[in-house]
Design a protein around this nucleic acid. Sequence first.
DNA 1: TAGTGGTCTAGACCACAAT
DNA 2: TTGTGGTCTAGACCACTAC
Lengths: 246, 246
Amino acid sequence: MTVQPDITVDRSSPVPLYFQVAAQLEEAIQDGRLAPGDRMDNEVALAQHLGLSRPTMRQAIQVLVDKGLLVRKRGVGTQVVQGRIRRSVELTSLHDDLARAGKQSHAEILGLRMGKPTEDACTHLGLQPSDRVWVLDRLRFTDDQPLALMHNVVPVAVADLSGADLVDGGLYGVLRAAGVHIRVANQEIGARRAGVREARLLGERRGAPLLTMRRTAYDDKGRAVEHGEHLYRPDLYAFEMTLVDR
Amino acid sequence: MTVQPDITVDRSSPVPLYFQVAAQLEEAIQDGRLAPGDRMDNEVALAQHLGLSRPTMRQAIQVLVDKGLLVRKRGVGTQVVQGRIRRSVELTSLHDDLARAGKQSHAEILGLRMGKPTEDACTHLGLQPSDRVWVLDRLRFTDDQPLALMHNVVPVAVADLSGADLVDGGLYGVLRAAGVHIRVANQEIGARRAGVREARLLGERRGAPLLTMRRTAYDDKGRAVEHGEHLYRPDLYAFEMTLVDR
DNA sequence: TAGTGGTCTAGACCACAAT
DNA sequence: TTGTGGTCTAGACCACTAC
């Protein structure tokens, strides 16, 4: 049994054809028109059906393979993955994640100052001690509960944070507005006990388990633009992600 | 300044051309012949230099962009990312991760039995209550230190675990040997306190912070093949990953 | 044997960035 | 204006799977 959901392409649109197709296929999976386990038509037939070349059709399918929604097997076909769809950890800030989930959130600014980078910051951001950085400390709340204690360092050469709205917006939004295009990040997720100050700020007891995340982000020129060290309340937050074997 | 590291392709090799090029480019980045910030030659020139078509050259570059080693910007070029290279969380088991890092590791089998799936397991693996599953509990050691307490569930229809070497090998290796090709996984990383039994097994105190990971893995036909719930000692283990904006 | 995805070619035109 | 990556075409041959 093969499936061909209703898909149309608009060649006058500035949106790439492969992206139009990928978006409509994803929609079909999300709303159940393509059910888990369904096998799609083969690539050549799909391409012909939509009036596209096969490479373009393949590119559309590749987008969903990379998202973990489809799997391909040579000699067999392309099928919808059985599992429930989860949003992956993406290259977004906590503010963006919460906003997408429909959660209210705001941040309390504990500190924002320009200064010399620590040795650690120099290492992570590839800076010289003579460079200057913004050092930002915030406590993010959701539904008026303290959720995360965030420490971020941004080189002053990257953006000016002095007038930015870091209470209702997110750091990544501010960077985007400053023309910074974040493309890649390395991050490390771990756990440790809360210290006295951390516990007080997060409304936990001293020694309570906290989820930790350290991230360094790079822009579309490969330049390090941000390093963050965050602490999360594990009863309120966890990291979800999809892994794909390529 | 543009850079063209020494790359050769072997058209008689069964290894795809784009993969040969990607592997050699990655090697050049790892050993410093391509340094962070270096700009590569443009795609057309590289393709011509290697006697490849541009789409093939682009595919090679795409591999490294997906790994977070290169960034591309239209009108600008392709550059090496500044940051240190980290291995991403990949679709591998803890055993494979440790082996790749050169760590000795072995597992103590706390239990292996065939039985009825719990309601939870039915949900995660898409099973009926009448199906049967393997339930596996292990304690993994590295350098003779307890590192992780692992609980895994595998449908009996997927593989026979009864005779498998789960002490010195990993679960994913056993599944691979059984012809299972894991392609996609959803996972969630969090933290919580250790219970009494968990603390005793892991050599921690009750209430100590533990890193938690829950994962459901799917094969190349989209079928759920494994669900795991793991606990890690955070002083010995953390999750590293690279995020790429696509 | 028939059907599938995996790879590859040799071009083309376009949008965007830098100058 | 020039150079870059982004997209797209219309084919081709191959390796693997299932029957």
